[in-house]
Computed example of a mutant assay.
Amino acid sequence: MSGEIVVKGVRVAWVTGASSGIGRAVALELAASGVKVAATARRSDALAELAAEALGRGGVVAAFPGDVTDAEAMASIVAEIEASLGAIDLAVLNAGLFIPVKAEPFDLGAFRKTFDVNLGGTVGCLAAALPGMTARRSGNVVIVASVTGYGGLPSSAAYGATKAALINLAEGLKFDLDKLGVGIQVANPGFVDTPATKKNAFAMPALMQVDEAARRIVRGLGEGFEITFPKRFTYVLKALRLLPYPLYFRLVAKATGWDKRR
């Protein structure tokens, strides 16, 4: 258990994409802090394993399997969570997938699937969770995006486009949610060792273990708009985006080894 982490004011949290990677680790971190966690993902068997592991650590994770691309199912799940566990104080919208893409061959299906899950799925979850929060004038939403949303990276044209959209989405919603008493944050991790990043065909600087990434996200709850780490890497990417395009493309291609690939 991570006894040193205390999640103030959060009794019930909903975590999507909780069957693996960052979502799973965040669910365990929150449960270890005494939060009742409602975990959603498509794989009910993986959610059952997550619930058992949390119980073994003295925490509570309840499985609410579902596909985030089904907005009606997400609305039903939120209603079920609030009926059984209580009002959702925190929603960590993390569900997503990474499909590496190239210009040739151009895979339209990969783009559509990525957009449906990463962007459409997040919007559907917001539609399910926000009405209750805004009615109560309380709650917090964390949208898990990525530093790939800062600027284009090799093989990430589909994934990065959705993450850039999620950052913009969170920024745009903040203006309204600030007036409605609901917090919103965006989490932009650097490279984290998950099943998704194992698909990357280039070197990943400052690769972080998933448990540490989860701790960083939980520690960042309520602390400013953006949760990003490790800053020694993510702030370099922010700075790169300020460069003229010719220099940006040259430096990124060199840093990733893409200038040597055919």
Score class of each variant (00 low, 15 high):
117 V>K: 05
117 V>T: 12
120 G>C: 10
120 G>V: 12
120 G>M: 08
122 T>A: 09
122 T>N: 04
122 T>I: 02
123 V>Q: 13
124 G>H: 02
124 G>V: 01
124 G>F: 01
125 C>T: 07
126 L>C: 13
126 L>I: 02
127 A>H: 15
127 A>D: 15
128 A>Q: 05
130 L>T: 02
130 L>K: 08
131 P>S: 15
133 M>A: 12
133 M>N: 08
135 A>I: 11
136 R>S: 12
137 R>P: 09
137 R>I: 04
138 S>K: 13
139 G>N: 02
139 G>P: 05
140 N>Y: 03
140 N>E: 13
141 V>P: 02
144 V>S: 06
144 V>C: 10
144 V>I: 05
145 A>G: 04
146 S>I: 04
146 S>T: 07
147 V>R: 07
148 T>F: 00
148 T>S: 05
150 Y>I: 06
151 G>S: 06
151 G>L: 15
151 G>F: 12
152 G>Q: 11
153 L>V: 03
153 L>H: 09
153 L>P: 03
153 L>Q: 03
154 P>V: 07
154 P>F: 00
155 S>C: 14
155 S>Y: 11
155 S>E: 13
156 S>A: 14
157 A>V: 10
157 A>C: 07
157 A>R: 06
158 A>Y: 03
158 A>E: 08
159 Y>H: 07
160 G>S: 01
161 A>I: 04
161 A>S: 14
161 A>Q: 09
162 T>H: 04
163 K>Y: 00
163 K>E: 07
163 K>P: 01
164 A>T: 00
165 A>P: 05
165 A>C: 04
165 A>N: 09
165 A>W: 00
165 A>D: 10
165 A>H: 07
166 L>E: 13
166 L>A: 08
167 I>W: 09
167 I>A: 08
168 N>P: 03
168 N>F: 03
